[in-house]
């Protein structure tokens, strides 16, 4: 098996006195496409932020590319939730994507033609070549989401971390974004968090369920009904986890 890209070992995080993550252990390997599912407030975003080094763990450890969080700058492409952005900000899609090159530049160093080439590539991959000059306020939710993915790609990362990439887009655009991720998984390790249980199972290689604590759903594993009941305290959609790349049907998760 290839080297783990992310290793979380008995990770606990408290925010403002409440436990958000309780003993989360998780390994993400090179070439993985892992989805972390869970209810709102289940700690999905906190898990991403801990991996990015924005949140310090209370106990337990995280390593990214074998180093503590915050040391692998430039190898990680982060795609935050698009709904938190100030759409009135006077900035073009192109300049947002150019910001993806920040991790590759020194302080006060100016962007050059190589950076601009990367931006053009990233816009091309995400299907936004025609929208580069558009102000972000004039983009649709799905277009802004793809701009943020393009920004992450512009850094030439090995690992992509996505926070709810389909939360603020219409159903058609969801398919476009999942198709894009399907293409990106060939060159990138991908971890995304979402509460979109509908179609995700068809695309990813592994699913983790997070509600403070974490359950890993490996291919072929089955989880007891009791464990699932304690993870989700309310009925959720059925998550069909089909390994489309192997052609065979994986396990069938029945989240009652």
């Amino acid at each position: 098996m290839s080297d783990p890209v992310i290793v979380c070992d008995r990770l606990c995080v408290e925010l403002g006195g409440t436990s958000v993550l309780l003993g989360v252990s998780l390994s993400v390997y090179e070439g993985d496409f892992i989805a972390v599912l869970g209810p709102n407030g289940g700690g999905k975003t906190t898990l991403l932020k801990t991996i990015l080094g924005l949140v310090k763990p209370t106990s337990g450890t995280v390593t990214v590319f074998g180093e503590p969080p915050g040391h692998a700058t430039g190898r990680i492409g982060y795609v935050p939730q698009s709904m938190f952005f100030d759409r009135e900000f006077p900035i073009s899609a192109w300049d947002v994507v150019l910001m993806g090159r920040l991790s590759r530049k020194k302080l006060m160093q100016r962007y050059n033609s190589a950076d601009r080439r990367k931006v053009a590539e990233a816009l091309e991959i995400t299907g936004l070549s025609d929208l580069g000059s558009r102000r972000i306020g004039a983009l649709s939710g799905g277009e802004l989401q793809r701009v943020l993915i393009a920004r992450a790609l512009a850094a030439d990362p090995d690992l992509l971390l996505l926070d709810e990439p389909t939360a603020s887009v219409d159903p058609e655009m969801k398919t476009t974004i999942y198709d894009l991720l399907d293409r990106l998984r060939e060159r990138h390790t991908i971890m995304l968090v979402t509460h979109d249980t509908g179609t995700i199972g068809r695309h990813v290689s592994r699913i983790a369920c997070l509600n403070c604590s974490l359950d890993m759903h490996e291919k072929g594993s089955t989880l007891g009904r009791k464990a699932l009941d304690s993870l989700y305290r309310y009925p959720v959609d059925i998550v069909e986890h089909i390994d489309s790349h192997g052609g065979s049907t994986g396990e069938h998760h029945d989240h009652a």
Binding site: T73, I76, Y78, P80, F85, V96, M99, L102, S103, R151
Partner: peptide, 11 residues
């Protein structure tokens, strides 16, 4: 524009 992203980028 995005202070969090700036921090992640090593600023």
């Amino acid at each position: 524009f995005d202070e969090e992203y700036a921090r992640i980028s090593g600023l």
